[in-house]
Design a protein around this nucleic acid. Structure first.
Lengths: 207, 207
DNA sequence: AGATTTACATACATGTCTGTATGTAAATTC
DNA sequence: GAATTTACATACAGACATGTATGTAAATCT
């Protein structure tokens, strides 16, 4: 076959990543051969090995393409707790609407053995987890400063709690068969998670 | 080699399970060959295949030997929320003190691809997750009935929240390098998680 | 326009894993 | 105590995965 244009090569690379995500999600990362990925992408292993060093490298690319789920510092308004809540709800909404992101997280949380070459991937994952924790903690600190956080709630601890909570939520939500069936309860759990941390001051709008 | 006594055979079976847990934890379930397990247990693959149908079956045995982590209906006393809290703390404590249980959960949460034969294992896992959810929800219902739950907290939602929270806690805690360093904060997160759900009645002892 | 890369496809060498079939000597059964 | 299981070890067959080396025709560079 002829050499491809630079743009075509980039297309090929993207196709490999997308197909890798699909196949990983179907068969698991370790259980998937690069031959399967190549076949799904209509190329040979040669192409895969040209674009990526090995499977772990490919998996990192899959991860990188999806990126972070939570974006707290974006458009949303309101006090710190409201911003945190809508950040969490937005993340959930992205998972619901973005099938690719969902697949990526499904692979990361249920279809990958973090061992050997993949411990590096896990460290990466934990690093973005630490970022999540930092951002959430910062929001709780702001809430504390503004007296809208319950006085007996420590920002650092609350941040950790939310980190645990959302990690588990993702893990469980992703493996639930009928996700739309638990949508309402999941949203309610998020709202309740935040609401119970809010100081009981004068009359406040919950909604 | 000679045929083993029934008791010896049972010993062999146990040895295989324990070694499987170790090797799975080191190399991941999918990435581990039954030859490795057999070697670690000082037997051949013949023995492994005699005792277990295949790797998934062996993994189920590893899981079954460790059993559930949470035992809420046991000895602890106090009101529903106190019992829930000590149940969660006990589960954490078991993970800290019981290296085998820890290894099993590490494998289940970080070193296994739930795909193919292993989807059955995941279903099993989710079933015990559902049991957890039911028990926790029952405790919140009791707390609600006894007016010690915040009136704006719905037992079912709180149960779900706690389920998410503890699932994430396990996952994160198990992959943290220096676990003793985050012990205090983890305990505090559990306590805070429960405390924020308690109704603010008259004077109560937090400790 | 010629030289040089590039973007793969093909081929090769090697190792590994699985499941099953068969062998066997001693426990266990009757 | 003879017949039958049992608890494995050994052997076999087939598939499959990985990484690299090599080939090649067309882009891209100069």
């Amino acid at each position: 076959m002829a050499r491809k244009t630079k743009a075509e090569a980039e297309q090929t690379r993207h196709r490999i990543i997308e197909c890798a995500r699909m196949v990983f999600n179907r068969s698991g990362v370790n259980n998937t051969s690069l031959e399967e990925v190549a076949h799904a992408a209509n190329v040979t292993r040669g192409a895969v090995y040209w674009h990526f060093k090995n499977k772990a490298d490919l998996f990192q690319a899959v991860r990188a393409q999806t990126g972070r789920l939570l974006k707290l510092n974006s458009s949303s308004t309101g006090d710190a707790l409201q911003r945190l809540q809508s950040g969490l709800l937005n993340a959930l909404h992205r998972l619901e609407s973005d099938a690719e992101a969902r697949a990526t997280f499904e692979v990361m949380l249920w279809k990958c053995e973090y061992v050997g070459e993949f411990t590096a991937v896990r460290n990466d994952l934990m690093k973005s987890g630490q970022d999540f924790l930092d951002e959430v903690t910062a929001l709780y600190s702001e809430a504390h400063k503004n007296k809208i956080l319950r006085p007996d709630v420590v920002p650092e601890i609350a941040g950790l709690e939310t980190f645990f909570f959302f990690t588990g939520l993702l893990k469980i939500w992703l493996t639930t068969d009928n996700r739309s069936a638990i949508h309402r309860q999941t949203v309610a759990a998020i709202e309740s998670h935040i609401a119970t941390k809010r100081a009981e001051s004068i009359h406040k709008k919950t909604h």
